[in-house]
């Protein structure tokens, strides 16, 4: 059983999934933050792979990527961060999230092998819809990595079937039509969408985009199997004074969300 499967099976409540960008604002701080996430209450960690042109992200995560790149962030560093994290955490699922070009530049096959060897469990490649899945699908499967697919408010039944064909691990329901960290979803409308997805698949369904507060998490948690909080956590790095204070702030924030 994969870490992702085990986590969803064993949890008696919705999973809290947290996002930070690898290397933001620098390698040491980012690694330290990643390490404290599970203890603070994160059930699954999502790690962003920095990219110069994140066309599906809002300003907060755009800036996080820019900080990481400015500090020397790159794919090798992201994978080494995962290896460091795995040294003292063998349980918490870790999912890499990002864009296709850095993966293509690294080499899709080598990327999947190295990611799996480093301790990655799944991949969310934002700009790789089912139509272009060939770029990665066979290599990810061979390496035992889940391909986590996105479902959105504009996904119809036929499209949902197509998305489910190659999906594994869990489904990521994008709660709004928009970029990360912007608008907020209406829980009532969301409920209908999630139920529609559940009728078609046994995969856990998590909800992300625009979820910030303990209230949001509680409301979405009643509907979904998991809730992703990204921009609200990343914001801590925007105003960071020193490493210790930002880690303390993140620990408190996640404890309140969990």
């Amino acid at each position: 059983m994969s870490r992702i499967e085990r986590t969803f099976k064993s949890l008696k409540r919705p999973a809290l999934i947290t996002f930070i960008t690898a290397g933001d604002p620098d390698y040491e701080t980012s690694l330290a933050a990643l390490k404290i996430l599970p203890g603070a209450g994160a059930d699954i960690v999502e790690l962003g792979m920095p990219f110069t042109d994140p066309a599906a992200d809002g300003p907060v995560i755009q800036r996080a990527g820019q900080r990481a790149l400015a500090a020397g962030g790159c794919m090798k560093q992201t994978l080494s961060m995962v290896r460091e994290f795995r040294k003292d955490n063998g349980e918490t699922p870790l999912v890499l999230m990002g864009y296709a070009n850095p993966v293509l530049a690294y080499g899709p096959e080598r990327f999947c092998q190295d990611a799996a060897e480093s301790g990655v469990d799944g991949l969310i490649i934002v700009d790789l819809p089912p139509e272009e899945a060939d770029l990665l699908a066979a290599y990810a499967k061979a390496a035992g990595l889940d391909i986590i697919r996105l479902v959105t408010p504009v996904t119809d039944e036929a499209r949902l079937e197509k998305i489910l064909e190659g999906a594994s691990g869990f489904l990521y329901y994008v709660s709004i039509t928009g970029v990360t960290g912007t608008a907020q979803a209406d829980p009532a409308a969301l409920k209908a969408h999630i139920e529609r997805i559940r009728a078609r698949t046994d995969l856990p369904v998590v909800v992300g985009f625009g979820i910030r507060t303990p209230q949001d998490v509680a409301a979405m948690g009643e509907i979904a199997d998991g809730v992703v909080v990204g921009s609200a956590i990343v914001e801590n790095f925007e105003t960071m004074k020193d490493r210790e204070s930002v880690l303390a702030a993140i620990r408190d924030q996640i404890a309140a969300l969990a």
Partner: peptide
């Protein structure tokens, strides 16, 4: 090809 976010695919 069509390398876009799922929200744009439909």
């Amino acid at each position: 090809g069509r390398y876009v976010a799922e929200t744009l695919m439909p």
